[in-house]
Computed example of a mutant assay.
Amino acid sequence: MSAPEVERPRTRRWVGLLVVGVLALVAALALPLLRESRARLRARGLPDFGALPTFRLTDQTGRPFSEADLRGAVVVADFMFTRCPTVCPLLTAKMARLQRQAREAGLAVRFVSFSVDPRYDTPERLAAYADTRHLDTSNWSLLTGELEDVETTVLEGFRVMMGRDADAGEDDFLSIFHGEHFVLVDADGRIRGYYRVVDDSGGLESLRRDLEALVHAAD
């Protein structure tokens, strides 16, 4: 008569362990779905600033590069020039940091830097700039081209300012000005955000979260 009394607590323990195991399995399966759902909600909540512009430029290797090379990818773009002694080195460092974070998170993202001083920034100078700063160009392209083509792409396409003081000569690189925001483009080629990253206002972290949401939403 005593055997059932001894076995009952042991049976309860096994049932309890089984329930815990099932709940853990359900949680493990549900967590990725929950993250994906949150990512899709965040992605849908981002503004839409219009389509990525069409352009025909040249990358740091001398190869033609157009918006078609970015098709289907989440893209982060910025605007710089190699002679810039002020904000551009900081922008490049921030982009490199974001690139590392995306790689560590397993996010497939493309990075593009448009030179706003294209008459000076030849492909060779862009390549030297990338080499000097040890940039990973496996998914990061630095672009140049005819000044008119760059201006059309930056000013009309990305809606980012760029220019030079009217009375400045070609050697007066300190007269060059440009927007300091990073621009986020989704996998459908739509501009989804502008982020100020040169200060500590949280722009880079917001960009990281938004690009992660767009990558997961595109999967």
Results as ranks from 00 to 15, higher is better:
M1D: 14
E7T: 12
R10S: 03
R12A: 14
R12L: 15
R13P: 01
W14R: 15
V15I: 14
V22L: 12
V26E: 03
L29A: 07
P32R: 10
R35K: 07
E36P: 03
R44Q: 12
G45A: 12
D48T: 00
L52C: 05
T54Q: 14
F55I: 15
Q60F: 04
S66F: 02
D69Q: 08
R71Q: 13
V74N: 08
V75C: 02
V76L: 09
D78T: 15
C84Q: 06
P85D: 11
L90P: 00
L91C: 05
L91Q: 14
T92Q: 05
A93R: 14
K94Y: 01
K94L: 06
A105C: 04
V112G: 04
V112S: 02
F114M: 03
S115L: 02
D117E: 09
Y120C: 00
E124N: 05
R125V: 13
Y129F: 15
T132A: 15
R133Q: 12
H134E: 13
S138R: 15
W140V: 09
L143N: 06
E146N: 15
E148K: 04
E148Q: 04
E151V: 14
T152L: 05
F158S: 06
F158E: 10
R159P: 03
G163D: 09
G169W: 08
G169C: 10
E170T: 06
I176Q: 06
F177R: 10
G179F: 04
G179D: 03
V183H: 09
D188L: 02
R190Q: 10
Y194I: 00
V197W: 08
G202V: 03
G203L: 09
L204K: 07
S206K: 11
R208N: 04
D210P: 02
D210V: 04
L211S: 00
L214R: 06
H216I: 00
